[in-house]
């Protein structure tokens, strides 16, 4: 009796939580199929806003810019972040280590407007002094994104390295591997999952970012979040609903694929464990 009551309570709470999370998204998806141009008024089912969207050159340009920035950013952020993590965990106590470790995590807590403003200031000063970057756009946005997302990568790598026993690297050295071989043969392969996680995080954070990109972008360079924000600022628009629906679909597919891969890996590991038990 008591048990039944409790589970009913849990059920209600879960439903409420789920509704809170997903009703806004469902509304968005439903309204993206609305024929009417005025968003909250239902005018019948239609896919006309998707057609409008696909025919819009501005939208395509912003999608491509966002993906380009995110990819290049994730690539460099992973490299620099990994190196920073390695320096912090593996090179012992070098001079200024505490300062370095504090400074590398600063972008994690810094308000984005400050980061954006300071980067803009830097780019303007650089242009005054060296004439570079001559116009703000893809390059400046990418550099700005690398500066903050590499901090996240460094933190991920740092925690993964700290959990990784150092004796594997020592064993490799003992067997005749010079430090660089140890890095390529042992450390990096073992860090690969952490680097992949870091890459994905840097990629999504770059796709996500509106504030910093708005600061350091120039005329003509509009990322996807900037486009969405500038369009809805003057009022809800059905074609943006369609765009958001597509983004939700892409993200959901990605999450499902990741979950499926993880599920398979876990099954594989269980199988292997059973195999070793049988001996």
């Amino acid at each position: 009796m008591n048990n039944g009551k409790r589970s009913r309570f849990l059920f209600t709470v879960t439903c409420f939580g789920m509704a809170f999370l997903y009703i806004p998204m469902i509304m968005l998806i439903v309204y993206s199929f609305n024929y009417s141009k005025i968003v909250p008024v239902w005018g019948g089912f239609s896919t006309r806003w998707y057609t409008v969207l696909f025919e819009s050159e501005v939208v395509w340009k912003s999608v491509i810019l966002s993906l380009k920035v995110a990819t290049v950013n994730a690539f460099f952020a992973t490299i620099i972040g990994t190196l920073a993590g390695l320096a912090l965990v593996r090179f012992g106590r070098f001079k200024g280590r505490t300062l370095f470790s504090g400074m590398i995590t600063a972008p994690l807590v810094m308000p984005e407007v400050i980061t954006g403003l300071s980067l803009l200031l830097m780019f303007i000063t650089l242009k005054e002094l060296f004439g570079w970057p001559d116009k703000r756009g893809f390059t400046t946005i990418t550099i700005a994104h690398i500066t903050f997302s590499m901090a996240f990568v460094a933190v991920i790598i740092q925690s993964r390295l700290a959990g990784m026993a150092q004796d594997l690297e020592e064993a490799a050295q003992d067997l005749g591997a010079k430090p660089f071989r140890v890095l390529t043969d042992i450390t990096l392969p073992l860090l690969a999952p952490g680097m992949l996680a870091g890459w994905l995080l840097a990629f999504t954070m770059s796709l996500d970012d509106l504030i910093i990109a708005s600061f350091v972008s120039g005329p003509g360079a509009v990322t996807l979040p900037m486009l969405i924000y500038s369009r809805v600022r003057v009022g809800l628009r059905p074609d943006i609903n369609a765009l958001a629906t597509i983004i939700i679909l892409v993200v959901a597919t990605g999450v499902l694929i990741a979950a499926w891969i993880m599920f398979r890996q876990q099954k594989q590991r269980q199988l292997e464990l059973q195999m070793s038990d049988e001996d």
Partner: peptide, 20 residues
């Protein structure tokens, strides 16, 4: 002489086998 040039090999307490 660095570890990788010594005529010595070591068996670690944890065995330190390369998991990959």
């Amino acid at each position: 002489v660095p570890p990788y040039e010594r005529p010595i090999n070591m068996m670690f307490q944890s065995y330190a086998l390369f998991p990959h």
